[in-house]
Design a protein around this nucleic acid. Sequence first.
DNA 1: TTGTATGCGTTATCAC
DNA 2: GTGATAACGCATACAA
Lengths: 321, 321
Amino acid sequence: MAEKVTIADVARHANVSRQTVSNVLNSPEVVKEETRQRVLAAVEALGYRVNAAARQMRTGRSRLLAVRIETTQDGINVFDRFLHGLTESAERSGYRVLLYTAADDHAEIATIEQLLGEFEPDGFVLTSTHHGDARATWLAGRGLPFVSFGRPWGASEVAHPWVDVDGAAGTEAATRHLLGLGHRRIGFVGWETGSGVGDDRRSGWSRTLAAAGLDADLAAETDGSSAHGQAAARELVDRGATALVCVSDAVALGALQVTPDVVGFDDTPVAAAIGLTSLSQPLAEAAARCVELLADRLAGRPTATHALLTPSLVIRKEPRS
Amino acid sequence: MAEKVTIADVARHANVSRQTVSNVLNSPEVVKEETRQRVLAAVEALGYRVNAAARQMRTGRSRLLAVRIETTQDGINVFDRFLHGLTESAERSGYRVLLYTAADDHAEIATIEQLLGEFEPDGFVLTSTHHGDARATWLAGRGLPFVSFGRPWGASEVAHPWVDVDGAAGTEAATRHLLGLGHRRIGFVGWETGSGVGDDRRSGWSRTLAAAGLDADLAAETDGSSAHGQAAARELVDRGATALVCVSDAVALGALQVTPDVVGFDDTPVAAAIGLTSLSQPLAEAAARCVELLADRLAGRPTATHALLTPSLVIRKEPRS
DNA sequence: TTGTATGCGTTATCAC
DNA sequence: GTGATAACGCATACAA
């Protein structure tokens, strides 16, 4: 084990009291410059680091942000990039990320409750928000600091800070791109109606066609799998579609077997690998905004209520032509 | 904020001293059954949870495992599944996972040092081990508990607990599979010589061909990209290869543009999506073994030195035939 | 500007 | 078998 350097060691080394060391660290403006330098030198020399447990005991703040690590659902997900960004941003703000797992909303609430008693995270980051999200209601009801990546879908939701990516703006860009390529019969391969994210992405496609004076009648629903995506694409092409906007890369992958002019969503490794044009979510920025919102609130700073980011269209050429 | 229930509250509620409550929780065998029940009932009634910071202050143990979250390098990685398994297994053993980022080995050591002073993680999990890994040397030199996912490549490495997946066994299975399909000229698309993982995977291919009395002369090196994979595959096919074993799914994806009988490695979402036969690493089990090795060591239990797991071949049919 | 005293919640030590 | 006491390292109120 490593030698543990305490504030008392630093004080002794710098010939001051423990309190002075604490002041240098927490309220630098209150201590004389010369003393400050001396203490800082001692901190450096001894390799002193504030002990999180002791600080937490005294202040009640853990400098920990808790987030659930998701299971890779249909195999293609995007969460790890968000998580990396979150960890990085958190570090910049002086926080660390604590991971937990949970099978469903109910279990997640129980875990959060447990975490609250044990590690006392200062804040929580919720992901994959959905209609009637019990977690957000629970956290908000207790006044606990949290932010969600994903807007509060549904009207009666409790208001809370959130960050999200504007899916409609993304599919609008995709649709415009295909219009620019000369297509007039552009279809949409989506998920079943009712999912906030899916409906949002569909709306960008339909409104863009409407604005161009075109019918938005070529839409199909899938369960999100590539197989269903392929079947749906087949149907839409048979009905006259010459290009397809897809709700996800997984679905787009299936659609690609049917027709070449396809745009996916999420810019997953799959898209990059097969040369699929896709919409890239600014995940690092989203994560940074999550931390920003949370950190501001935790520090008592005035904070924005939410942030809506725009995805960017990554245009690729099909390599297998 | 939630009301904080302390051990004193429980003691009061159960009409015992704080110490008795602590005993019930930490050394149940030392306390009378009736008292134990009463205390447990009070714990339940009050929703008491041990405070991690206070426990850590007293015992010096944080119940925290630290692991670096990797950046998605070439876009196709496998780390998130490992991380999920790690978190889940850690929870089962009473640990939580703390995340950190680092740009390189040097930075990672600095971060570990910082973490040690602040949050005092009980153990570390290293991933992506490589030749002359400074992190392992550093940790081992200080006698800090850690386990690596990835064996210590290189002979002069310090011995330490590790878990890894047997890449050679995987490519052996892949090669056998292709032999079973009737192929006799089987090539290997790998990485540049020198990477432990890549050399290991290549060796399974060559030894299997040798055992079958065939020449292992159709090998190519790539930088790991799909584009290079495709070029290398083209070259090998021109030289007579009828099937290819690949060092990764990314490379296999490129090879697939050239010839259909290809086996990838890692069974990434890409493989699943495009119907590529691939080798699946038992990541959840690997994570579980990492936690097991670490937890055993932290608890002072006798522990295995390492675990070498076998990947499984996931046979798929090309869907685009 | 600096020093002294106190308590955060827990567990280990030692009496009872 | 149970209870009192001390100590972990830090930050705050208060005194000097």
